[in-house]
């Protein structure tokens, strides 16, 4: 069962690369912020439909949930904006390396302390080695 989650995560990354390449082209015509807006706007419509037909959870939970659990959307926008702003200054390579290293280190910290409601898993040797291998891989790509 756990395998499926790994495969989903791999697919998510693959999809993100295609998305990035295609939106790169779209951004040239309509602008970068506008491209993000297009993505979120039309994405909301698609998800609205998915939710109507297949939603089994409780959207109304959004009203009583602790407010910080609603911040997912804003954080996504902060991320996007930071990339849009920095690429022209330092280039795609350095931007991606900095983003990914930030992401990896923060993931480790979040999980180790069980922050933001995630399950608490201690950092172990293997996870540190995985992060180091990723950083080497990144430096080799760019």
């Amino acid at each position: 069962m756990r395998y499926i989650s790994y495969i989903l995560a791999l697919l998510a990354g693959a999809v993100l690369s295609f998305e990035g390449a295609i939106y790169g082209e779209l951004g040239k015509t309509i602008g970068k912020l506008e491209t993000s807006f297009y993505n979120f706007f039309v994405g909301s419509i698609i998800l609205g439909l998915l939710w109507l037909f297949f939603g089994k959870g409780k959207l109304s939970y959004a009203v009583k949930a602790p407010k910080w659990t609603l911040l997912g959307g804003v954080l996504g926008v902060v991320y996007l904006t930071s990339i849009v702003i920095s690429v022209p200054f330092v280039g795609v390579g350095i931007t991606m390396v900095a983003v990914i290293i930030g992401q990896l280190i923060m993931s480790m910290v979040i999980e180790h302390y069980g922050w933001l409601g995630s399950k608490k898993f201690r950092i172990n040797k293997e996870k540190v080695l995985a992060v180091i291998s990723m950083i080497i891989a990144l430096i080799l790509v760019y």
């Binding site: 954080l75 990339i83 930030g102």
Partner: peptide, 17 residues
Amino acid sequence: ILFTFLGGITLSAQSAI
């Protein structure tokens, strides 16, 4: 670069939240 690094941090926070 620091700013982008922060971008990566927010992305992790997003997946956790």
